[in-house]
Structure formats: C-alpha cells, structure tokens
Design a protein around this nucleic acid. Structure first.
Lengths: 204, 204
DNA sequence: GCATAAAAGTGCGTGCACGCAATTTTGCGT
DNA sequence: ACGCAAAATTGCGTGCACGCACTTTTATGC
C-alpha cells in the first residue's frame, strides 16, 4: 500500500499527474477561460466524470499542478527534524524549505495565480491540505496530544502560510493601487510564521 | 450608511434574513434533500437568481441562519474590551460570549449540522468571516500593525474556532464509533483558543 | 489458471453557481 | 417634484459538480 505499491496506486498517481499537467498546459496555451473540463479530461485520456473523481473543481487541478504535493511533504519534514530543535523552528524551516522551489514557476504561471480570482482562491486553499498530517506530526511532540491543541496549531500554521501566499500573490481583487510590498516568498513565510511561533513553543 | 441607514440597506438585510430563515425552516420541515434553491427563493419572495446574489451555495443560507452574524460581532466585542486587559483574554472572552447563545438551537437543527456533510462544511466555514474585521481590531493593539501579523493572528483565531466547532459537531463522517468527548461548546472554545493565546500575547 | 471480491472508470441525469445584459428600484441633487 | 445615476433584481444561457447505477480493471483466495 506504499508509494510504488500496487499497480493500482501507480496508475492512480499517473492519472492525477496527467490531469493536473494537462490542466496547467491547456490553461497556459489558450488562456484559462477557454479550457473546458472535458478538454482536460480528453488530454489526459479519461472521461470528464473521472476528472471530478480526482479534483472537485476545475481550478483545483491547476493549483495542484503548481504546488504538486508540496504540502504533504511538510509534515514529513517536520517529523524528520524530530530531535532537540524547537518546534517553531522545525515547522518554519520545513515550510520554507518546501516552498523554496528551484525555479519556482515561470512568469506565465504567476499571472494565472494572480489575475484569475478562481485560480487564486484554489491556490490559497492548498495549504489546508497540510493540516491533518501536520497535526499528527505535532501531536508527537506536544504535551496535550489528545486534546485539540495539535489540530489548532496545525491549522494556525496552514493559516499563516495562506496569509503569506495571499500577500505574495498580491492584494486580491480588492484594492487597486495599494502598496505591493511583495517580498520574497521565503521571507514572507518566515514573518507570517513568526507570529504563530510563540504558540508552537508554548505547547511543547 | 450605518445600520438603520437607508431604506436600501434595510431591505437588503430583510431579504437576507428572509432567505436564511426560509432555508432553515424548509430544511427542517421536509428534510434538507427535498429543498430546492427555487423553493427557498420563492418562500422569500425573490427570484432564484437573487438567492445566489446573497448566498453562494445552497447550504450557506442554512449555516447563516444558525450563526446569524455571530462572527461579525466578535470583532466589535474585541474592540470594546480595548482597555488594559490582555489581548488573548479579550479575544477569548469575546468569542465565548458570542458563541454562548441563550438556547443555542434545538435538537433538530443540531441534527442538520452534524449529519449532513454539506451543511456541516458550510457551518465550519462560517468562522472565516471573522478574519477581516478581527484583523483590524487586532491591528489596533499590536506593534507590527502593518505587517501580516494581525491577519495571521485573526486567521489563527478563526482556525481555532473552526476546530472547536468541528469537535463539537462530532468527528466528521470519517470514523464511525469513535469517542465523542463533546464537551460544552464554550469549554471547547476556551481550550482551543488557549493554544493560540501565547501568540496573541506575544504580539502586543 | 479461475472465480470472486474490491476498486477505479464511465454515462446519465439533475440541480446549481454565476457571467451577462436588460429592467426595476432607490436615493440624491437641484 | 423631477430626473438621473447608482444599485439591486431578474431571466437566460452555459458549464460544472456530483449521486447513482453500470462496466471494466486490478488484486486475492482457491
């Protein structure tokens, strides 16, 4: 049941990958508004219905292509740093590390994330995926591991990441000519996470 | 432009109220699966299209009927406690106060919130509405009021409330016969918020 | 191998969310 | 009072999310 496990899991991963890749490619090629779900499904060689077995919205596939399971690795990275380092430090480093991709996307992709509200929303929703696995990793290191504390802390981390990503992509469709202090993403993440660090350290 | 302001705002509020009331009533009367959006709209005397100008999903109206602007008052309550009390205390008390309703719903309503996944999801999404106003209230009391800190802290509070509500409604559709330590909601809220309290106090 | 269960893929039908453009309502200035 | 601009409501059309029942594929016992 592990990663390379059965042929079954393998194919499932391949299909998922094919879908999100196709979604991103098509969105870049012809613009996100001219891509139908059926197009993506066809490009990936599955039925439109199957698409919705993998992604529950059209934009989710694009967001998934950009982040490609980044979140799920954060929990593992935290667990790996298990030793004597402070929890806040472990979490912050794990997050920053995972969000510091090599090239971190081309300009075109960034345009998609910043200009299309629906895609932006889907992108900002991705950090939520880290909550459950991260909560377990945190539970292994805090005192009150039965209570809601691990869940709450994990949710706080996810929230901080979301806020950082929101600032990074630019201030939503709300204000028009406001300040855009879009620093580097790693820096934004560190600042945002520093606000929750006291809560993390107080728990262990 | 204030509360009783123009006739316009008044009517808008009335329509909103009518819609969510109708939604809850119909869902209770004939079961949530036998209520169409057109039914709700008709009961409220507006067109189906108008319904979606107020609520972006069918379940959102029901969730709104249960919480009825509770979240928006939290920020005001925090701002009211402006004086010398610690920020964590101000926030916790404000939240608990707002979520300690007189009767706090009948059994039937609770069934709706706990058994129907879609309604439950909508209900758990409601705390997010507190983020923006609460962030402003917090910004007035912390040092780094320009940076992302207020936003992050507000998001953490919302996340904690969400986790508490999730525990209160019961452990999702996942496990079947697991432990249901459903304490009183105020108590759950206090425990959940105590995890973020260090972060709140560290910021001011 | 072969049967049989479990799981993924598929087609269909229904209700829904939402952009758009036209229409009605509200509120303000004169 | 009157007209005008902004705002709210409405109808329509399109694509979509998802439950359901059915087929196909994969995995496991015999």
């Amino acid at each position: 049941m592990a990663r390379p496990g059965g042929l079954r899991e393998q194919k499932k991963r391949a299909t998922r990958e094919a879908l999100r890749t196709a979604a991103l490619r098509l969105a870049l090629e012809r613009g996100p508004d001219d891509v139908r779900v059926s197009d993506i499904a066809e490009a990936a060689g599955v039925s439109p219905r199957t698409y919705n077995n993998y992604f529950s919205s059209r934009e989710q596939a694009i967001a998934a292509a950009v982040t490609s399971e980044r979140e799920s690795r954060i929990a593992a990275a935290v667990a790996a740093r298990a030793a004597g380092v402070r929890l806040s430090e472990a979490v912050t480093d794990a997050v920053v590390e995972q969000y510091t991709a090599p090239g971190e996307q081309a300009r075109d992709v960034l345009l998609l994330l910043t200009t299309r509200p629906a895609i932006r929303d889907a992108f900002l929703a991705t950090p939520a995926a880290v909550e459950e696995p991260l909560a377990e990793a945190i539970a292994a290191r805090v005192a009150d591991s039965d209570g809601p504390t691990p869940q709450v802390l994990a949710a706080c981390v996810a929230a901080a990441v979301r806020v950082a990503l929101a600032r990074w992509t630019g201030p939503a469709p709300t204000a028009s000519g406001l300040l855009i202090p879009t620093g580097s993403l790693p820096e934004l993440l560190r600042v945002a996470l520093s606000a929750v660090a006291p809560a993390l350290d107080a728990a262990e």
